[in-house]
Design a protein around this nucleic acid. Sequence first.
DNA 1: TTAATGCATTCATGTAGATTAACAAATGAG
DNA 2: CTCATTTGTTAATCTACATGAATGCATTAA
Lengths: 176, 176
Amino acid sequence: METLEEILKQDKNAKTKLFKKGEVIQNKGQYSPHTYFVSKGLLRSYIIDSKGKQHIFMFACEGWIMADLESIEFEHPTELFIDCLEDTEVVIFDRNWMTKPDVEADQLLQNIRLLYRRMGVLQKRILMQMSSPAIDRYTHFLETYPQLPNRIPQHMIASYLGITPQALSTIRAQNR
Amino acid sequence: METLEEILKQDKNAKTKLFKKGEVIQNKGQYSPHTYFVSKGLLRSYIIDSKGKQHIFMFACEGWIMADLESIEFEHPTELFIDCLEDTEVVIFDRNWMTKPDVEADQLLQNIRLLYRRMGVLQKRILMQMSSPAIDRYTHFLETYPQLPNRIPQHMIASYLGITPQALSTIRAQNR
DNA sequence: TTAATGCATTCATGTAGATTAACAAATGAG
DNA sequence: CTCATTTGTTAATCTACATGAATGCATTAA
């Protein structure tokens, strides 16, 4: 079977778009039912809570998809900001892209596998958030995304882990 | 469009199964690539962490699906236990059920919507776990699952929220 | 060069929630 | 019915992590 990327490159309907580092793709309050497949670069989604604090929901580098599925499924405005941590190339899909009649079986299968993979990651994240201390979550992050620490600053890792940059710094110091 | 339940009832391939309250459907360490659609009753999935503590990952009542998607997608043994909190009727699917050639378009669309819905819930849960205190998570749980508090004991709600039963008890007392 | 800005580290103190324990009420089994 | 288990509550103490402030070090701009 071909990779999703190979399939997408042959797809006439797929819209490719380039974003610059720092560019904002989606703002809180919008309803934008798009799903982004990252073919190159690095995206980030995050919320800003009632106290003004940022919390990174996820990163998406090459081969991952980025979308506010809660917003798309329940059809309400998004709480998520999405922006680019690097110059990024994405393929954009609309709502219900997966079930359009012209979608090929191969592509559909790949799409569904991406959804499963994503859910697997979300599931693991919830379980770790509930049952493991910050040090274990950090170790797990390093194992799962070995390439990311070289591409993003520490404070973003902390934000992803759900702790402060100070706490992460302390953890790293103890672990040395 | 018909509901998934109506579709499933006409499906010759769908296997229906009955479980008794308390029965264990899946144990940690197994690899069982099944997805359960709950047509009646209530299922629970949970992990037991390295210190022996239980953490409830999710509940699935009527109309929801239950599966260890991490295990299915990455093809490793499950960490999740699944058991019945009530007498429960489920429809069982195997790995790759969604992409079988004999699956009808209507059913496929419904299946994908269930996946999206589930991911929306997971996403919200992660964001709340990171950014909101226990009291807010409890309130959100009550809004999202108004029927569940009548069907499960408090300590299971606490376990789902990621806090101890004592903490939940205190929160509820303050809120009165 | 000198500010100015962003990033990481360390420390002192504060706090949400964990832990442990004790107890009462409800439920269930023999 | 009785006894045992499950469930929910309250309180005292403990701990992981937050908060706020100070410091050093790059990088960039003027």
